[in-house]
Amino acid sequence: MAAIAEPTTGIKKNYLTAIQEALAEEMARNSDMICLGEDIGILGGAFGCTMGLQDQFGPQRVIDMPISEAAIVGSSVGMALNGKTVMAEMQFIDFISCGFDQIVNMMATYHYRTAGEVAINVTLRGPAGGYGGGALYHSQMNESWFCHSPGLKVVVPSTPYDAKGLLKACLRDPNPCLFYEIKQLYRDSKIAEVIPDEDYIVPLGSAAIRRPGTDLTFVTYGQNVYHCLQAADILAEKGYSAEVIDIRSLVPLDEQTILESIKKTNRVVVVNEAPKTCGYAGELVARINEFAFEHLDAPALRVTRLDTPVPWVQPLELFVLPSVEKIVETATRVLRF
């Protein structure tokens, strides 16, 4: 449901470039926009997402902050309160916990407690996700903390096209948004793609069908989209046709696209890499039960991380995270029900 069709000719761009472009273009079109974060100016960001921005827009609009996530979030809220559009970077999304109170109590509730007087246009973005040997504090997917805090929009793009279009949508949305970047995808050349030169957004709350199918629906986001696509390949060899839905936006959620798919397939498996208990996968399963109640031929199941942190060394890390094998296994169970 992209606003502009994806072009097929031109230079392929990776996920990181898409983010760099979104930030630079929004800074250029919105003179009220400010970027702040740790090492985003002189260095251009730990991963280079803000490379060149300070040279282009100056240190007043691209601020190297002291190492305080609480001050980064709180001062972003103040800037937004006084009319600015703010992009605040978390060097790794894991460190967002150090700014937790400012996010869930100050930022998320602002609109509500002021009876709509104040809208806080802050986008908090940062690298997230496991499968990279980042260990406990450089691998987290902690999106459910924020989905559980009313007033925050939560977005997880899995492609360069979406990364650019969703980031622009967040930066133009009057509400606080959390934007999870999958760091394993930043420089992944396999997913690099041609993206439009002209301005476009991907609207928040619109899911994408990554692969059509008729027998089972995978509902997923982030890098698990690619695991589900691989699982769908394996299932295809066994004669099953699986549809893969990338929800992209967790809050708000595009229930309609999921419902339409389930009407067709009647079976669903939800996949994400966060811990199982109280994770967003559980929320998806519960919602599917509510809105697709009469269309399900089998209970909706989920594949998630075990209820553990993400350990460092590879065998342990892969043991706790969802794998293609685990996804195929669960899908097979649902298909045979």
Binding site: E38, D39, L43, D64, I67
Partner: peptide, 11 residues
């Protein structure tokens, strides 16, 4: 230095 940020921007 704190990563890419010099002392005078930290305190």
């Amino acid at each position: 230095w704190a990563y890419g940020t010099p002392t005078n921007l930290e305190y």
